[in-house]
Design a protein around this nucleic acid. Structure first.
Lengths: 155, 155
DNA sequence: CCTCTTTTGACCTTCTTTGACTAAAGTATA
DNA sequence: TATACTTTAGTCAAAGAAGGTCAAAAGAGG
């Protein structure tokens, strides 16, 4: 694969997949050693690939016996999951976070790949040609509306 | 002898042909070195010879482990129809006309019902909270972008 | 010559890697 | 118990590694 962060991301996702929904608990220093990188790279990977928007929950503890625990957010029912996303969106949404959310919806089988691409196109900053504080608000509005449609559309 | 851009174009097309439909992934700097040209020449080649209109899809990533990926997409008969729609849209689009176009795409089996609903949600005047001459321009921009992804997304 | 395409390079943006410094939690000790 | 030490993890900013943009200069064709 391409770079350390991607490799670590994949490794963690494999652990998660193997954990049968239980989540994984890692030692930061141990993983860093295993992949021969600095410990803080783990923080980078987590911050860029295991956020709420991506559908993960991260807990940690310092000191002796410390750990980092990553859990895939339970997507109880479709409606609760989508309500959760709506919560994350609020009144403004960056393009990055929008993409994370779309990715998460795809991974949770709420939308298809093509639907995801359509949504991303609608939220792209190139489509939304207005200045920045407003653009993020607009993006939020559009995605909220789309999520409502997904909520109330039978497959 | 032809020029550098043509040579690089051909080289990339050979890679594509050999890739068996998988697409190619290149390192810009590496190719530039190989052909002894500046890296940005790759951007020129891609922009002039591997556009959507030419039937290619290009993705890229910057930073460590960055890449440029080129994939060929088949766009049989759909393409003229969608090009026609793009023409109709132009630089502005009312909500009514937008709905007509979405309806038409659905009837022509270019999108599913759910996709249609998603698109309508994105184009709804309630989502697009800006004043009127701009709102129609914005709606046009968004739909044009969406049509492009429909064009270049294989089902 | 005039125009269109190609070539080049300076400058920009994004993503990743690294490490010094900080904060918190556990453990031993006065 | 209060204090000091040790063990973890967190933060943040600088440096590094790609790719992107844009416009000027150069070349090709008519």
């Amino acid at each position: 694969m391409r770079n350390m962060s991607d490799i670590i991301e994949q490794y963690l996702k494999e652990l998660l997949a193997a954990s049968d929904g239980e989540g994984v608990e890692i030692k930061r220093a141990f993983i860093a050693e295993k992949f021969d990188c600095v410990p803080s790279q783990l923080n980078y990977v987590i911050k860029t690939r295991f956020t709420n928007e991506h559908g993960y929950m991260v807990e940690s503890k310092r000191g002796g016996g410390g750990y980092i625990r990553i859990t895939k957010v339970e997507t109880h029912s479709k409606s609760e999951y989508l309500a959760h996303l709506k919560n994350l969106i609020g009144h403004g949404l960056s393009q990055q976070n929008a993409q994370h959310i779309v990715q998460s919806m795809f991974e949770n089988d709420v939308i298809t790949l093509k639907e995801g691409k359509i949504i991303n196109a609608a939220l792209d900053r190139e489509s939304l040609m207005i200045e920045l504080p407003f653009r993020d608000q607009l993006r939020a509005k559009i995605l909220l509306k789309i999520i409502d449609v997904i909520l109330y559309t039978e497959e």
